[in-house]
Amino acid sequence: MGLMIRDPRSGRTGGRRSAPARGAVRVTPPAPRSWPRLSMPSWQGAGQRLQQWLWPLLLVILGMGLYELYHRLQPLAQHPISTINVEGDLQYIDRDSVQQIIAPYMDESLVTIDLEQLRADLLGMPWVAGATVTRIWPDRLVINLDEHLPIARWGDSALLNNAGRAFSPERIDRFQGLPLLNGPERAKRRVMQTYQQFNRLLRPYGHEVARLEMRDRGSWFLTTRSGIEMLLGRDDVVEKMQRFLAIDKLMLADRRELIARVDLRYSNGMAVAWREPATVEMGSNE
C-alpha cells in the first residue's frame, strides 16, 4: 500500500514516497536564532558627549582664574614691605645690630623677599640661637628671635648655652662669674651634660661647680666655688661624687674650709689633702 503525504507548505498532495531505509534518521538542523540588537541608552551617549567638551571648558576656566590671580598679585609684587616686627625676649641681642641686618631688605616686596637669606643673616649674629621669619599679607613681616642662654664659659673665648652649643659674643669679659669648662672640642656637649649632673648633685649640699675640665685621656677635674679641688679619674664619676657627698655630710661638713683637694680615683674610698701640712686619708680599705 502506498503512503500519501500532504505538503503543508504547498497545500498539495505529493506522490507516493518510499519509506526510508530501516535505522536511518533524518535530522533537520534548527534555523539560527537571531538575537535582538541592543542599543546604548541615550543618557550614556549624552554623558560621553558631555565629557568631550567638559575638559576643554575646565581648562579655559583654570586659565582665566590664573590670569586673574596674576593681575591681583602683580601690584603686591611691586609694593614694598611697610612694617617689620621683631619679637622675642631679648636681653643680649643688640636691636641696632638687628636693624642693620634688616635694612637691605626693606625695599623688597612681600613676594620677592628671600626669607631664607634673611633668616641666615640673622642666625649669623653672635647671640641669635634661632630665628623665624613670617609673611603677613599684604605688606608686613614678623621676625621672632631666640637668644642663647649662657650657662658657662668654654675656654677663654666662647660661652656654652644650655644645649652645650658654643658661641662667641663680642664681650665675653662680663661673664667671668660663670663656671669655666674645658675639654676637647668634640666633647663640648658631654662636658656640659656632666657639669649639669654635678651641679644637681652638689647644690643640695651647699657646693657649686666653679671649674670642670675633661682632659685628653678622659680624666675629670673639678673645682668648687669654695676652692676644693676634686680628682675624679675617668670612670664612674657620678658614683664617685655621690661617695664624696656621703662622707662630706657625715665627717667633713664642719671643716670644708680646710679641705684643699679630694682624690676620688680610688675604687672604694678617697683621700683628702688639707690646707694644713697634714694629709688625712679616708676610705674603706682596712
Rank of each mutant, 00 (worst) to 15 (best):
P179W: 13
T194I: 14
H207I: 00
G177I: 13
P184A: 10
L212V: 03
I172Y: 05
A210V: 01
R171I: 11
I172S: 05
A210T: 02
N199Q: 15
E208K: 03
P179F: 15
R200Q: 12
R203L: 03
N182S: 14
L178R: 13
G206A: 03
R215C: 06
M192S: 09
V191L: 13
L212K: 04
R174I: 15
R215G: 06
F175W: 15
R174C: 08
G177Y: 14
N182I: 05
N182P: 00
L180Q: 05
H207G: 04
L180W: 04
F167P: 04
Y205N: 07
Y205S: 06
F175V: 12
V209D: 00
I172W: 04
T194G: 02
E208D: 11
V209E: 01
P204H: 08
G183T: 10
R186G: 00
L180N: 03
V209G: 03
L212F: 03
P169C: 06
M214Y: 01
H207P: 00
H207C: 00
Q196G: 10
R211D: 02
V191E: 08
F167E: 02
A166C: 08
E185W: 01
N182G: 09
L181A: 07
R190N: 08
R189A: 14
E170V: 14
E170A: 15
I172M: 06
G177R: 14
Q196N: 11
L212S: 04
L202G: 01
H207A: 03
L202R: 11
K188F: 00
S168T: 11
A163H: 08
I172Q: 08
L201V: 12
Q196T: 13
Q196C: 06
R186M: 01
L201G: 13
P179E: 13
Q193P: 01
V209S: 05
Q197A: 12
N199A: 12
L212M: 06
H207D: 03
P169N: 13
S168P: 00
N182Y: 12
L201C: 14
F175I: 15
Q197H: 09
R200H: 09
P169K: 05
R211I: 00
T194Q: 03
R171F: 11
L181E: 09
Y195S: 14
L181C: 11
R186F: 00
F198D: 02
P184H: 07
G177P: 10
R215L: 15
E170G: 11
R215N: 14
R186P: 00
A166E: 02
Q193T: 09
E185I: 03
L178N: 08
P204W: 06
R200D: 12
Y195R: 02
P169R: 07
Q176N: 11
P204G: 15
L181I: 07
R165C: 01
D173W: 10
R215Y: 12
M214E: 03
R190H: 09
R189D: 05
R171W: 09
L181W: 05
Y195P: 04
G183I: 08
E170D: 10
L212T: 03
L180C: 08
P184Q: 12
S168I: 15
R203S: 03
N182Q: 14
R190F: 06
A210F: 05
F167D: 04
